[in-house]
């Protein structure tokens, strides 16, 4: 943490000492940048807020009713230079911040692939991101590793310093995939696919959860994210593989049944079509009921006003 950040945080730090402040001490580069952004914006705001708080105290004290020595000008209500200052300062601050807002909205866009592993540490050319497909079910998380051909419930792991590409969807209710230590969150929503790109830099165990209220079992919808060395990640994958079990249409339909505090499950092999079917909302249904088919039909019959957005599903 940079020194000037530390000063701004001094009062907070005192309170936070006893807590596990992951958002202020993250282990993934995206989360680090997001934290720095919050601190930067706070400092920028304090430029206005501290003087105003000071002046409020000063004026309230100095111009109190029984201080007859203070100047009293009941009709003074306008001053062009002051008005310029009054409008100018907020405009300048917000303008400065807007530049940052615009830039970070693009650099930290969850859809943008990871370009750096840390400050001055670009992703080595040729590195392929680890793809993890995520399905939020009532009330558990399903993680599918298409390249490794494995799947897990309420447990996820990734090697450090390799970009991760989460692809998210949901079965029925909306949820939000949130692993505060490595990156911000993105919603997992039924009938749609969203993306979240992140990287983890330190080996460790990190809390993950849903950040979007989704009903009865919402509070228990948390899991552990294992940040592993590349070698340990390989071991973990092998372990899951030997665990046996297959995630296919039938198993998925069992997972669709609502349950609270679902224990960790591991599947050594996965139906490669399953995730696509989950996005398409037609696991175990005939093909003509798949959203992509329906949308393609809509498109054929589409009117001049609004063409259904076929690309939304894929």
């Amino acid at each position: 943490m940079k020194l000037h950040h530390f000063y701004a945080l001094l009062p907070l730090a005192a309170i936070l000492a006893g807590c596990n402040a992951v958002e202020l001490n993250p282990s993934g580069d995206v989360a680090v940048q997001e934290r720095d952004l919050i601190l930067y914006a706070t400092e920028l705001m304090l430029i206005v807020i501290l003087p105003v708080a000071f002046l409020t105290t000063l004026f309230a004290w100095h111009y109190r009713h029984d201080n007859k020595s203070a100047r009293y000008e009941p009709e003074w209500h306008h001053s062009t230079p002051l008005e310029v200052v009054v409008w100018g300062i907020p405009i300048i601050i917000i303008a400065v911040m807007s530049v940052t807002t615009w830039k970070t909205a693009h650099t930290l866009d969850p859809y943008a692939p990871i370009t750096r592993l840390g400050p001055d540490q670009p992703v080595p050319p040729g590195t392929k991101p680890l793809v993890i497909q995520v399905v939020a079910l009532d009330w558990k998380w399903l993680f599918i590793y298409p390249e490794q051909g494995i799947a897990t419930v309420n447990e996820v792991a990734a090697p450090i310093n390799q970009p991760i590409e989460f692809r998210l969807t949901a079965d029925r209710t909306q949820n939000s995939l949130n692993i505060p230590a490595i990156a911000g969150q993105v919603y997992a929503m039924p009938t749609m696919e969203t993306e979240l790109h992140a990287v983890v830099n330190k080996v460790g165990e990190y809390r993950g959860k849903s950040s979007r209220f989704s009903g009865t079992g919402f509070s228990e919808m948390h899991f552990w994210f294992h940040g592993l060395s590349t070698e340990d990640f390989g071991k973990w994958v092998a372990q899951v593989k030997t665990a046996g079990g297959t995630l296919d249409t039938a198993t998925y339909q069992q997972l669709q049944v609502q349950s609270v505090s679902e224990p960790v499950h591991r599947y050594g092999s996965v139906d490669p079509q399953l995730y696509k079917l989950a996005v398409d909302q037609c696991v175990g249904k005939p093909g003509n009921l798949c959203l992509s088919t329906i949308r393609a039909n809509d498109f054929k019959k589409g009117n001049g006003l609004c063409r259904p957005n076929v690309s939304a599903s894929n």
Binding site: E34, I38, I49, A53, T56, M97, G184
Partner: peptide
Amino acid sequence: ISFMFVFLLGGLTGVLNSIPAADYVLHNG
């Protein structure tokens, strides 16, 4: 007077929430 102090804090945190990249962290929190 009490409001003016409390509101300064509210304004600060409101602006923080308005930054999309910060909101990814703070949203629904």
